[in-house]
Deep mutational scan, measured.
Amino acid sequence: DKHFVVALYDYTAMNDRDLQMLKGEKLQVLKGTGDWWLARSLVTGREGYVPSNFVARVE
Rank of each mutant, 00 (worst) to 15 (best):
D1C: 09
D1T: 10
D1M: 09
D1V: 07
D1I: 05
D1E: 15
D1A: 08
D1W: 06
D1Q: 07
K2T: 11
K2L: 08
H3I: 11
H3S: 11
H3M: 13
H3Q: 13
H3F: 15
H3V: 12
F4V: 10
F4A: 05
F4S: 05
F4P: 01
F4C: 08
F4T: 13
F4L: 13
F4I: 13
F4N: 06
V5I: 06
V5C: 05
V5A: 15
V6S: 06
V6Q: 13
V6C: 08
V6R: 11
A7W: 02
A7I: 04
A7S: 07
L8M: 10
L8S: 06
L8N: 03
L8T: 06
L8V: 07
L8K: 13
L8Q: 10
Y9I: 08
Y9T: 13
Y9R: 15
Y9H: 15
Y9A: 15
D10Q: 03
D10S: 09
D10N: 13
D10R: 04
D10W: 01
D10V: 02
D10L: 03
D10K: 05
D10T: 05
D10F: 05
D10C: 02
D10A: 04
Y11P: 03
Y11H: 10
Y11A: 03
Y11C: 04
Y11S: 05
Y11M: 06
Y11G: 03
T12L: 12
T12N: 15
T12A: 12
T12W: 10
T12S: 13
T12Y: 10
A13C: 08
A13K: 08
A13W: 02
M14T: 15
M14P: 12
M14R: 15
M14W: 07
M14L: 13
M14N: 15
N15H: 13
N15P: 04
N15E: 09
N15L: 05
N15W: 08
D16E: 13
D16L: 07
D16W: 08
D16N: 12
D16V: 09
D16S: 12
D16F: 08
D16T: 11
R17T: 12
R17Q: 14
R17L: 09
R17A: 09
R17Y: 10
R17D: 12
R17G: 14
R17N: 14
D18A: 11
D18I: 00
D18H: 14
D18T: 11
D18Y: 13
D18S: 11
L19E: 02
L19W: 04
L19M: 11
L19Q: 00
L19Y: 00
L19K: 03
L19F: 13
L19C: 01
L19H: 04
Q20R: 11
Q20Y: 09
Q20T: 15
Q20G: 15
Q20N: 15
Q20C: 13
Q20H: 09
Q20I: 05
Q20M: 10
Q20S: 15
M21A: 01
M21S: 00
M21V: 12
M21C: 07
M21W: 00
M21K: 01
M21Y: 00
M21P: 05
M21I: 11
M21Q: 00
L22S: 15
L22H: 15
L22W: 07
L22A: 14
L22F: 09
K23T: 05
K23P: 04
K23Q: 08
K23G: 02
K23W: 02
K23L: 00
K23I: 04
K23A: 09
G24R: 02
G24V: 01
G24A: 03
G24N: 02
G24K: 05
G24Q: 02
G24D: 03
G24H: 01
E25K: 00
E25N: 01
E25Y: 02
E25M: 04
E25T: 03
K26C: 09
K26R: 13
K26E: 13
K26M: 10
K26V: 08
K26H: 09
K26W: 06
L27R: 00
L27M: 08
L27Y: 07
L27C: 05
L27G: 05
L27K: 00
L27H: 03
L27N: 03
L27W: 05
L27P: 01
Q28C: 08
Q28W: 03
Q28Y: 05
Q28I: 13
V29C: 05
V29K: 02
V29Q: 01
V29D: 03
V29G: 04
V29W: 03
V29H: 02
V29P: 02
L30D: 01
L30M: 06
L30V: 08
L30H: 03
L30S: 04
L30R: 02
L30A: 02
K31W: 05
K31D: 14
K31G: 09
K31C: 12
G32E: 15
G32V: 08
G32C: 15
G32L: 07
G32T: 15
T33A: 12
T33N: 14
T33G: 14
T33K: 13
T33R: 09
T33P: 04
T33Q: 13
G34V: 02
G34Y: 03
G34R: 04
G34A: 05
D35C: 10
D35K: 11
D35P: 13
D35R: 12
D35Y: 12
D35V: 09
W36E: 11
W36L: 13
W36M: 15
W36I: 14
W36T: 11
W36G: 09
W36Y: 13
W36F: 13
W37Q: 06
W37S: 08
W37P: 01
W37E: 03
W37L: 15
L38D: 02
L38G: 02
L38N: 02
L38H: 09
L38R: 06
L38S: 02
L38T: 07
L38F: 12
A39R: 01
A39F: 01
A39Y: 00
A39H: 05
A39D: 00
A39L: 15
R40D: 04
R40P: 00
R40S: 00
R40L: 04
S41P: 01
S41G: 00
S41F: 00
S41T: 00
S41I: 04
S41Q: 04
S41E: 01
S41V: 05
L42Q: 10
L42T: 13
L42A: 07
L42W: 05
L42M: 11
V43G: 06
V43Y: 07
V43L: 11
V43E: 15
V43C: 10
T44F: 00
T44Y: 08
T44K: 04
T44W: 02
T44D: 09
T44A: 03
T44G: 03
G45K: 10
G45H: 06
G45P: 04
G45W: 02
G45D: 06
G45Q: 08
G45V: 02
R46S: 10
R46A: 11
R46K: 15
E47S: 09
E47M: 06
E47A: 08
E47F: 04
E47N: 02
E47H: 10
E47V: 12
E47D: 06
G48W: 05
G48P: 01
G48Y: 06
G48K: 02
Y49H: 09
Y49G: 00
Y49Q: 04
Y49L: 12
Y49M: 10
V50A: 08
P51D: 03
P51H: 04
P51R: 07
P51S: 02
P51A: 02
P51L: 02
P51W: 03
S52L: 03
S52N: 09
S52M: 12
S52A: 14
S52V: 09
S52K: 15
S52Y: 08
S52I: 04
S52C: 11
N53C: 08
N53D: 13
N53Q: 07
N53K: 14
N53Y: 05
F54Y: 14
F54A: 15
F54T: 09
F54V: 09
V55L: 13
V55Q: 00
V55H: 00
V55D: 04
V55W: 03
A56C: 10
A56N: 10
A56F: 05
A56G: 13
A56D: 09
A56K: 15
R57C: 11
R57T: 14
R57N: 14
R57A: 14
R57D: 15
R57G: 14
V58F: 09
V58T: 14
V58I: 13
V58S: 11
V58N: 07
V58D: 10
E59W: 06
E59S: 12
E59D: 14
E59G: 12
E59K: 08
